[in-house]
Deep mutational scan, measured.
Amino acid sequence: SFNTVDEWLEAIKMGQYKESFANAGFTSFDVVSQMMMEDILRVGVTLAGHQKKILNSIQVMRAQMN
């Protein structure tokens, strides 16, 4: 498990989005775990492969939080 959203993004090789997530207010796992595709688009993730990777990881995160 990760301590910060930045660490999580690095771990899934999506570190290039750290600033975008932070600027959009997605700075805690409570918020990130609620993200939908529209949120991912809003933070500027436009590549389908990256969207899928982030969404898949969020689903895993949700499962671990319950």
Results as ranks from 00 to 15, higher is better:
N66L: 05
V5D: 01
S57T: 04
Y17R: 02
V31S: 14
N56D: 15
V5C: 03
A11N: 10
A48K: 13
I58E: 01
G15C: 06
Y17M: 01
V43W: 02
I40K: 00
V32G: 01
N3G: 14
N23I: 11
F29V: 07
M36R: 14
F21L: 03
M61H: 05
V45E: 01
R62M: 09
T46E: 08
L47C: 12
K18N: 04
G49V: 14
H50S: 03
M65P: 05
K18F: 05
A22G: 06
V31Y: 07
Q59K: 15
A63G: 13
D6G: 13
Q34Y: 07
V43K: 00
V43I: 13
H50T: 02
T27A: 07
F2A: 07
K53I: 15
F29Y: 04
F2G: 07
S28V: 04
A24H: 14
G25D: 04
K53D: 10
G49F: 11
I58T: 04
W8Y: 02
K18I: 10
F21R: 00
V43S: 05
D39V: 02
R62F: 09
G15Q: 07
D39G: 03
L9K: 00
D30P: 08
I40H: 00
W8T: 00
K52L: 13
A48Q: 10
M37N: 05
A22D: 05
S28F: 04
S1V: 14
G49R: 12
S1L: 13
L9R: 01
N3R: 13
Q64F: 06
I58S: 01
R42I: 09
I58G: 01
D30L: 12
W8D: 00
N23S: 13
Q59S: 11
F29I: 12
T46G: 06
S57N: 06
V31A: 14
S1F: 14
N3P: 09
A48T: 10
L9C: 02
L47E: 15
V60P: 04
D6S: 12
Y17H: 04
D39W: 04
G49H: 15
L9I: 03
L55I: 08
T4D: 08
M14E: 01
I54E: 00
W8N: 00
A22M: 12
K53S: 10
F2S: 07
G49C: 13
T46D: 07
L9Y: 04
A11C: 11
V60Y: 13
F29P: 04
I40Y: 03
E10P: 01
Q34P: 03
D30N: 09
E38F: 06
D39Y: 03
M14C: 07
M36H: 14
A63M: 10
G15Y: 06
I40Q: 00
G25V: 02
N56T: 12
A48R: 10
F26N: 02
K18P: 01
A63V: 10
A22P: 00
D6K: 05
N56R: 13
E7S: 09
V5P: 03
L47K: 12
N3Y: 11
M35K: 01
T46Y: 09
S33R: 09
Q34K: 13
D30V: 12
K53E: 13
I12W: 02
E7M: 08
R42L: 10
N23D: 11
E7Y: 05
N66P: 08
G44F: 02
M37Q: 10
E10I: 10
V60W: 10
K18S: 11
I54K: 01
N56S: 13
N56F: 09
L55Q: 05
G44S: 03
F2R: 06
V31F: 08
D6M: 08
W8M: 02
V31T: 14
M14V: 03
Q16Y: 06
M36Q: 15
V32H: 02
N23T: 12
A63F: 07
A48M: 08
T4R: 06
Q16K: 08
A24R: 05
G49K: 14
S33Q: 08
G44I: 02
L9E: 01
S57F: 09
V60M: 13
F21W: 03
M61S: 04
L9M: 03
V31N: 08
G15H: 08
Q51F: 05
L55R: 04
W8A: 00
D39N: 03
M61N: 05
Q34I: 09
F29K: 03
G25Y: 04
E38C: 08
V32Y: 01
E10S: 07
F26L: 08
S28D: 11
I58M: 03
M65F: 06
K53W: 13
S28T: 14
Q34A: 09
V45R: 01
Q64S: 12
K13E: 15
S28W: 04
E10K: 07
Y17K: 01
G49N: 12
F21E: 00
M61D: 04
Q34L: 11
